[in-house]
Structure formats: structure tokens, C-alpha cells
């Protein structure tokens, strides 16, 4: 476990050694601001809640989280540091989870920095802070899912660009599978279990469930299982491809 902490600390610090962290945080805050206040008609709606903010979060994450995830392994493989890392007395688990947690904490930090929006609604009215808290938790869990997908695809290629695009496509699929449009398209002909399967696998339906303020175990389990599965896939892919 010590190894995990050491890896986590190095990775987390590494985000702030390059402009990446600052660029990510600034873009995230600006875009979330635009989405919430401008596109989301925050003031016009005249409601003291963060629904518009959390409605846009999945789409924002879809673009930004793959950018964080893409360097997780591609960069290690391209520069050869993976050989150094894998020959230090660290288990594959410690390395994969340590790196993942660092990325997850980092994205969490960016999310926390949106707190002025939360202060604003509290200033303007009396929002249901329980719902907001749940939505924040849901957003962070969803970011974890995206990151785990990204970790796996980043392990599969030395090119960060390829990792980014593949992560984006797969994450989009997971988000959109619960989309009303997609569900409608299937509902005419597909059997019920396919529809259920699609919505069960969808990031969006679980995220929506949580952000309504009802934190159900199955939604949390869904994200955790998702993260676990993709991280396991990361391990398998790394074992296959680390030396290429």
C-alpha cells in the first residue's frame, strides 16, 4: 500500500509540473460557467438550483477527462519510463490504482473549484443542498468512470492523440446509450432487455439517478464496478503491450 501512496503523490505532483493542470482547470471552470449561466439560462430560469450546471457536466467531462487520461500510460510507454516503473518493487495494482487515483483526485479538485457557483445559488435563494451534494458526488463518480476507460485505452497506445480520440468515442457511447434519442431509436423494435441493458450500462442514467438526490447503492456500485473493470483491463493490456 505504501507503494500506491508514493506513486499517487508523484503523479499528482506531476500534474502541476506542466501547464496541463492549470490549463485544464481554467478551461473547465470557464466552460462550466458558460454552460451554466449562459447556455443553461441560469438567471432566466429563476430557480435556485444547479440543474443546468449538472446537466452539462457529462458533456464537459466527455471532452476534458479524456485529455487528462490520455497521458496516464501512453507517455510512460513512449518515453520508456514504464520499464523503470515496472522494475521497481511495485505491484501492477499499486501502479495502476495509484495513477488512476491521482488523476481522479485531480479532476475532483477541478470540480471542487466550481464552488463559487454553489455559493451563488445559496446567495440567490434556498437550494436543496442535499441534491447538490449528491450531484457533485455523482459527477465525480462519473469522472472516475471516464478516467478508468481512458486509463485502459491509454495503455493500449503510445500515441496520446489516439488515446484521446478512442477514449472520447467509447465514453460517448457509454453516455449516449442512455440518451432518450438512442433509447427511442431502439424502443420500436428492440426487446425490452436490450433497452434495459442499454440504460443499465449508460453513464447518464446512473448519473441522473444520483443527481436527482437519491443516492442508491446500485448507482454507486455501477460506477465502482465500471472503474474496477476498466482498471483490470488496463492491467491486462499493460502486461501484453508494455514491452512493445
Amino acid at each position: 500500500m505504501n507503494g500506491l501512496i508514493v506513486v499517487l503523490k508523484r503523479e499528482l505532483a506531476a500534474y502541476f509540473l506542466t501547464p496541463l493542470a492549470y490549463v485544464f482547470i481554467v478551461i473547465f471552470l470557464i466552460l462550466s460557467g458558460i454552460f451554466t449561466f449562459y447556455l443553461g439560462r441560469f438567471y432566466e430560469r429563476g430557480q435556485a438550483d444547479l440543474v443546468s450546471f449538472f446537466n452539462f457536466i457529462p458533456w464537459l467531462y466527455l471532452i476534458l477527462v479524456p485529455a487528462v487520461a490520455m497521458r496516464l500510460w501512453s507517455e510512460e510507454r513512449r518515453s520508456g519510463t514504464i520499464e523503470l516503473l515496472m522494475t521497481l518493487p511495485l505491484t501492477l495494482f499499486e501502479v495502476i490504482v495509484g495513477k488512476f487515483l491521482a488523476a481522479w483526485l485531480f479532476v475532483g479538485l477541478a470540480l471542487l473549484l466550481t464552488f463559487p457557483t454553489w455559493i451563488t445559488v445559496n446567495y440567490l435563494g434556498q437550494p436543496d443542498n442535499g441534491v447538490i451534494l449528491a450531484s457533485y458526488a455523482g459527477s465525480w463518480l462519473m469522472a472516475g468512470g471516464f478516467l478508468a476507460v481512458g486509463s485502459c485505452l491509454s495503455a493500449a497506445t503510445k500515441s496520446q492523440v489516439v488515446a484521446f480520440i478512442m477514449t472520447l468515442v467509447i465514453c460517448f457511447t457509454f453516455v449516449a446509450s442512455g440518451f432518450p434519442m438512442v433509447q427511442d431509436a431502439f424502443s420500436h423494435w428492440a426487446p425490452v432487455w436490450v433497452l434495459d441493458g442499454l440504460s443499465v450500462l449508460s453513464f447518464l442514467s446512473h448519473f441522473d439517478a444520483i443527481s436527482r438526490g437519491v443516492i442508491e447503492l446500485r448507482d454507486i456500485v455501477y460506477f465502482l464496478v465500471m472503474i474496477g473493470a476498466w482498471l483490470m483491463a488496463t492491467g491486462i493490456i499493460l502486461n501484453m503491450k508494455k514491452a512493445d
Binding site: 506531476a14 518515453s79 520508456g80 519510463t81 520499464e83 523503470l84 522494475t87
Partner: peptide
């Protein structure tokens, strides 16, 4: 103790 070929290390540290 191992020095891999090309001495890879984390460039931004």
C-alpha cells in the same frame, strides 16, 4: 538496481 537501456526517467521532474 537497474539502469534500463537509454536511462529513461521522468523528464518533468
Amino acid at each position: 538496481g537497474y539502469l534500463p537501456e537509454g536511462a529513461p526517467s521522468y523528464g518533468d521532474m
